[in-house]
Design a protein around this nucleic acid. Structure first.
Lengths: 214, 214
DNA sequence: TTGACATTCAAACGTTTGTTTGATACAAAT
DNA sequence: ATTTGTATCAAACAAACGTTTGAATGTCAA
């Protein structure tokens, strides 16, 4: 294995991720990928075996590590608080996903790749669910458990977490609708607004609390 | 235009909807569609011009009318209540989308088609957003407005509606994850549970209220 | 310098793709 | 019975697809 090889392999992975995220697996041809990566057509099969295995490797080598970075950001952001509370968890969660350690392009790719797997699971879904989502939800559950009402079972807690999660990923992947409905661009100010929205809604639902603090 | 023609055209639309929803535009071939519809390959181009126009017609002739049925169901369900309240709106919304007038297959197709357009808008997105989502959100906003805190602007109200909506569509399209995390099948009982979850979360967020009523 | 191995490359493989064509079948109107 | 218009069909089209091949190139150890 050469140095030049690594470079080509990496370039293919990068371009494949961008194209798969933007257009989906079937709409992207191996020729598109290799042209974007400025290498020969046969390079995909040489380095990855075939197109499907390249797609899987995008998740293994790119998506999962990035998801772990987001998770780590969430963990640290929570640890930096003096006291953990429900609102701190919601805040850290929303910030990690909507702002967090990823660039805006990375974030968009990440949620597009994930959402495609959620709609129509392939082999990559096992990676996504088993290595990232399930452990992360488990961690969230353990963190939130002490603050939940006694009567709330594990299923109820999980559903609450999924409810928060639904907002977080929705505001990431459905930008087209959100922009169209609110009439706002996805700039830094709007992302702040969305974090605020998710936190507030997670705490009080439809407005009961009139933003007493802050 | 013949009677037989209508039948073929309808069969193509039906099979196209099923396949586009399940596999996405690019993963479905015209041959697959015409084989499933038991007609000649050239029928798609004869009746619809080309594949892309067929895809668009699926939204025009199938998706939009179904979305209107869901909307109507929501409206009637709300009208049948003696008094409109925030919780009644949330209840009617969640029920319309998760149970509502559609069969389970229809519901799944509907949200898969929509979610694909949300991730990666095509020409069909204009139909979806302009003819269905925007007017529906407008209606929701007008209904909820009287119950919202005075300080809440139009943008805040819209974001609240989008937050509810995010849960509703998430619990529809991300069945794979939801099932995997909660360990439950999407049977009638679980859908009831999800409606309850969405209503409760929409009203109280993360649990502040310990389900005082009911 | 030679040999062994890893990587790139142009070219071709056999399929499958969306679309077009021209003949045929069928219905209703003249 | 003949004309007219519509719908279906098998067959073919060029283009694009994923993958394979075998030769060329580069790299490093012996």
């Amino acid at each position: 294995m050469n140095k030049k090889d690594q470079v080509t392999r990496e370039r293919i992975l990068n371009e494949a991720e961008v194209l798969f995220a933007k257009n989906g697996y079937d709409a992207v041809s191996v020729r598109e990928i290799t042209t974007a990566a400025r290498c020969n057509l046969a390079a995909v099969n040489y380095h990855f075996g075939n197109k499907q295995k390249l797609y899987l490797e995008v998740f293994r080598a790119r998506w999962v590590p990035r998801a772990r970075r987001v998770q780590a950001y969430f963990r640290e952001s929570l640890a930096s608080q003096d006291t953990v509370s429900t609102s701190a968890v919601a805040q850290a969660l929303a910030e990690a996903f909507l702002k967090g350690p990823l660039s805006d392009d990375e974030r968009q790719r990440q949620s597009q790749l994930m959402t495609r797997e959620l709609i129509q699971p392939t082999e990559a879904f096992e990676l996504l669910a088993g290595e990232v989502l399930r452990p992360f939800f488990k961690e969230l559950a353990d963190t939130l458990r002490p603050f939940m009402p006694k009567g709330l079972g594990n299923e109820g807690l999980m559903l609450n977490i999924l409810s928060m999660f639904s907002m977080v990923i929705y505001f990431n992947f459905a930008r087209a609708v959100v922009s169209r409905i609110t009439g706002r661009d996805y700039d830094a100010a709007f992302k702040d607004r969305l974090v605020e929205q998710i936190v507030e809604f997670s705490l009080n639902g439809l407005g009961k609390g009139e933003k007493e603090g802050a």
